[in-house]
Amino acid sequence: MPRRFLQRYMPNPETLRRQRSLRFLGHVIGDPGLWALSRRTVANAFSVGLFSAMLPIPFQMAVAAFGAWLLRCNLPLSVGLVWITNPLTMPLVFYGNYRLGAWLMETPAREAPTRISTRWIAERMADILPALALGSVVSAVLLAVLANAVVRLLWRWRVSRSWKRRALKRRRRRLERDT
């Protein structure tokens, strides 16, 4: 079942609550609803986490945590999925978002220099920002909706498959017992 797989990698809420840097969030971290693993909470956590990951803003993890609290979905998954846009993947993802935004705005996209620097970004920010913002929001919404649907379908398929296997085992046991 997907729940057992996810529980193996989940941090312990009690351990997190005892950490000095997170004490001020103790009442939030200790909320059992934010640690539940159900089809709804996991699918919504994927939506919140991937939506937050696509936004070119600082404090993406805080946005994901607030979204998890707001939607009552799984907090660790929401926050962990933000790391899809880590320092290695961030330039590629945000450049792709920029290209998507430029395409949607029907403006020519600037080619990336051979070496991207903060100076280059600062000089081009006024030109880049509208397309980057539009592309990021569009990709965030599309990815969130797609992730939610895929997680729900996969979860349902796994549960259905598990039920069928258990029914088959029960039939086999009955046949062995009757013979």
Rank of each mutant, 00 (worst) to 15 (best):
L142I: 13
L175T: 10
R152D: 02
T85K: 00
Q60S: 10
P11T: 08
S47T: 11
P76L: 00
Q19C: 06
G49L: 10
R156C: 06
G101N: 01
E176I: 09
P113R: 02
F51K: 04
I121W: 09
V138M: 06
W163Y: 11
L77A: 01
R39L: 06
A131P: 11
E111Y: 03
Y9N: 12
A112Q: 14
I128F: 08
V150E: 10
T118R: 13
V48M: 13
M105V: 03
A140K: 07
K169T: 04
T85F: 00
A167F: 00
Q7H: 10
Q60H: 11
R174I: 09
L6D: 08
A45C: 02
L168I: 03
L22V: 07
R40N: 03
R177V: 11
N12F: 02
R119K: 12
L22C: 05
F59A: 15
L168Q: 01
H27C: 05
R177C: 08
L77Q: 02
K164F: 08
Q60V: 08
V159Y: 03
L134E: 15
A65M: 00
W163N: 11
R20G: 13
G67V: 04
M90E: 04
M54V: 11
R161M: 13
R8W: 09
L146Y: 10
V42Y: 07
M10E: 10
T89N: 14
L132I: 11
L129S: 15
I84H: 01
Y95A: 03
A68W: 00
T89A: 05
R152F: 00
R23S: 04
A65C: 01
L100W: 00
A36S: 14
A62G: 14
S117L: 06
F5M: 09
I121H: 06
W69R: 12
L146K: 03
A131T: 12
I121F: 07
R161F: 10
V93L: 00
R18S: 07
A53I: 10
Q7L: 13
A133E: 15
I128V: 13
A65L: 02
R115Y: 06
N44I: 06
M90A: 04
V42R: 09
T89S: 14
F66D: 09
R20Y: 12
R173F: 07
R172W: 14
R99L: 03
G49D: 09
I121M: 08
R177S: 13
L22S: 09
V79F: 00
R124C: 12
L92F: 13
A147L: 03
Q19P: 00
V159G: 03
D178V: 11
G49Q: 09
I57Q: 11
S160K: 08
R170G: 05
A149Y: 13
C73R: 10
Y9R: 13
V63H: 04
R124Q: 15
W103N: 05
P2K: 12
P130Y: 09
R20L: 15
N148Q: 12
R174C: 05
H27R: 08
R173L: 06
T114Y: 09
M61D: 11
F59N: 15
R152T: 02
W103Y: 09
P108S: 15
A64C: 03
M1T: 07
M1F: 01
L55Q: 07
L132F: 07
R165N: 14
